[in-house]
C-alpha cells in the first residue's frame, strides 16, 4: 500500500498543538483531490502558504481577509462556466473573517446560494494578530482588546450566533462542529459535500496561545466544550434544525473555563453567570 499522503502536508508552521491543521486534513481526506481551496488571510494562510512553499496538495488560492466568499464565488462560477461540474470549492476561513470583516461578503455569497462549502475554523478571536476579540469571542474571555481592567473584565457581550444567522439565509446546510468530535465533523462534511449551493460549517478550534492552554489539551478542550454544553453540535438541513448531541449529564462549565488563561480572572459569580446562561439555553432542548 502506498504511504498515506495527506492533502495538507507536514512542515506547516502552526503552533505546536494547534488543531486547525487537523480540521483541514480531516476534511480534505473526505473531499479528495478534486477540490479548490479558497483561504482567507488568517493564521491558516500564514502557516500554510509562505512563499516559496505550501502545505497544500490541492489547488489553493488566497486573496485577502474579508473577500473570501466573493473569491470563492468567482472560482465556482468560473469552473461551472468552463463546464466543470465536479470540482468542489471549499473555503477555509477563521472567525475574524467569517463573523466580522467578511460578513457582508459571506451574506452575499449565501444569498446567491453559491456552490461553495464554507468552513470556519473558530478559535474565538483574531489569533493571527495576537489575540484581539472578534464577534466569536465568548462572554468573559480576556483578549488584548477586551482586557481585564479595573472597570471592565474581559468581553462583556455574548458570541454572535453565526450558525443561526447563516441558516436564516435559507441555504441547504448550516452546522456547528468541534474537532473534539471528529466523527460528527466527518459526518457533516460527508453530508454537506455532495449538496449543491452554499453549505456552512463552524468548527471549534482551540488556540494554544490565544486561550492560554497547554499545547497537549487542544483536542481534549474541543471535546469538553461540547460536554459542558458551551458549544453545541447542531445542524440545519434544508432549514430543519437538529441537535446532534445532547450530553446525558453536562459537565460543569467550570471544568472547561478553569483550564484556560483567558478566563482566569473570572470570579465564582462570573462562572455562575455563564453556567446559568448555558443552563437557560439548554432548556430549549
Amino acid at each position: 500500500m502506498a504511504e498515506y499522503e495527506p492533502l495538507f502536508s507536514a512542515g506547516h508552521t502552526a503552533c505546536a498543538g494547534c488543531p486547525m491543521p487537523v480540521i483541514f486534513r480531516h476534511i480534505l481526506d473526505i473531499t479528495g483531490p478534486d477540490v479548490v481551496v479558497v483561504n482567507a488571510t488568517s493564521c491558516s494562510e500564514i502557516i500554510s502558504s509562505a512563499y516559496p512553499r505550501t502545505a497544500w496538495r490541492v489547488p489553493y488560492v488566497h486573496s485577502l481577509f474579508e473577500n473570501t466568499p466573493a473569491v470563492a464565488s468567482g472560482v465556482a462560477n468560473a469552473l461551472r462556466a468552463q463546464g466543470n461540474d465536479h470540482t468542489k470549492v471549499i473555503i477555509f476561513a477563521g472567525d475574524g473573517s467569517t463573523y466580522d470583516i467578511g460578513f457582508g461578503a459571506l451574506s452575499g455569497m449565501l444569498e446567491r446560494n453559491e456552490d461553495v462549502l464554507y468552513v470556519c475554523y473558530d478559535n474565538e478571536a483574531y489569533m493571527n494578530t495576537g489575540v484581539q476579540r472578534s464577534g466569536a469571542t465568548p462572554f468573559g474571555a480576556r483578549t488584548t482588546t477586551s482586557p481585564v481592567g479595573r472597570v471592565h473584565h474581559g468581553k462583556e457581550i455574548f458570541k454572535k450566533p453565526i450558525v443561526d444567522i447563516v441558516a436564516a439565509h435559507k441555504i441547504p446546510y448550516a452546522a456547528s462542529a468541534s474537532i473534539g468530535y471528529h466523527a460528527d465533523l466527518a459526518a457533516k462534511v460527508r453530508k454537506a459535500l455532495p449538496m449543491k449551493g452554499s453549505r456552512f460549517i463552524d468548527v471549534l478550534s482551540p488556540c494554544v496561545p490565544g486561550w492560554g492552554i497547554d499545547s497537549a489539551i487542544t483536542i481534549e478542550l474541543a471535546k469538553m466544550a461540547v460536554d459542558c454544553g458551551i458549544w453545541k453540535l447542531v445542524e440545519y438541513e434544508n432549514g430543519n434544525f437538529k441537535l446532534n448531541l445532547k450530553p446525558g449529564q453536562r459537565r460543569p462549565v467550570k471544568d472547561y473555563l478553569s483550564k484556560q488563561a483567558r478566563f482566569k480572572h473570572l470570579t465564582e459569580q462570573d462562572v455562575a453567570k455563564i453556567q446559568a446562561q448555558v443552563d437557560e439555553e439548554w432548556k430549549k432542548y
Binding site: S9, A10, G11, H12, S48, P52, R53, A55, R57, V58
Partner: peptide, 15 residues
Amino acid sequence: AKPGTSRENKTGSWR
C-alpha cells in the same frame, strides 16, 4: 508554490 513543499520545513527542530 508547488504542492506539499512545506515538507522542506523541518519543524521537528522546534521540539
